[in-house]
């Protein structure tokens, strides 16, 4: 973790502190900077294992992924569940399916699991980190084969997130 990263992290934390307190006197700015520096020094080695991976390209990919995720993908998933709720007598087939994944870093696993759980219709029930499986409760299972389920549910997340964190 280089000095530049510590400085960036400190400034972001100080900015969040200042926004939350809402006052911008000299004393407040000093407190924000000191608290931010302390937290940055305390947590930096745990949060960032490999500083070589920090780059502007990865950050812009992450922003692009978040924009796409919170507009298109979430809208489609919401529409699927809202249809099930509002259509009288709609039939659905809930199932707990197995989804293989091929990423290794902890950040990638957590981000993919969060992306799956955050879309309505799929909830990650369990993770097997040795065999690399997610076990996902899917409200309307159209198929039960592992690879086809992966293609429908998690392939888009995995493709984008492996470019950000791997």
């Amino acid at each position: 973790m280089g000095r530049a990263s510590i400085a960036v992290f400190t400034l972001i934390l100080a900015l969040i502190y200042l926004i939350y307190t809402g006052s911008y006197g000299v004393l407040e700015v000093m407190i924000a900077l000191i608290a931010g520096l302390g937290v940055a020094l305390l947590l930096a080695t745990d949060l960032v294992r490999d500083p070589g991976k920090l780059s502007i390209t990865r950050f812009s990919r992450a922003v692009g992924y978040l924009l796409k995720y919170f507009t298109i993908i979430e809208a489609q998933a919401h529409w699927g569940v809202v249809k099930l709720i509002l259509k009288p007598g709609a039939s659905y087939k809930p199932a707990i399916v197995r989804i293989p994944y091929e990423v290794s870093s902890e950040y990638s696993i957590v981000s993919i699991a969060n992306s799956i759980t955050n879309t309505p219709g799929t909830v990650v029930v369990d993770v097997d980190e040795d065999k690399k499986f997610f076990y996902v409760h899917w409200i309307n299972a159209t198929t039960l084969k592992d690879q086809e389920v992966r293609r429908i549910v998690s392939e888009v997340f995995e493709k984008e997130i492996s470019k950000i964190f791997e």
Binding site: K93, P94, A95, I96, V97, R98, A113, T117, V123, V124, V125, D126, Y135, H137, A141, L144
Partner: peptide, 23 residues
């Protein structure tokens, strides 16, 4: 929601009504 689902599944508090249960 993940920790709710996992703990309820592991404790067998509620058995899921599903067409297939791979876990």
């Amino acid at each position: 929601s993940h920790i709710l689902a996992r703990s309820v599944y592991r404790s067998r508090e509620v058995e899921p009504t599903v067409i297939a249960d791979r876990l």
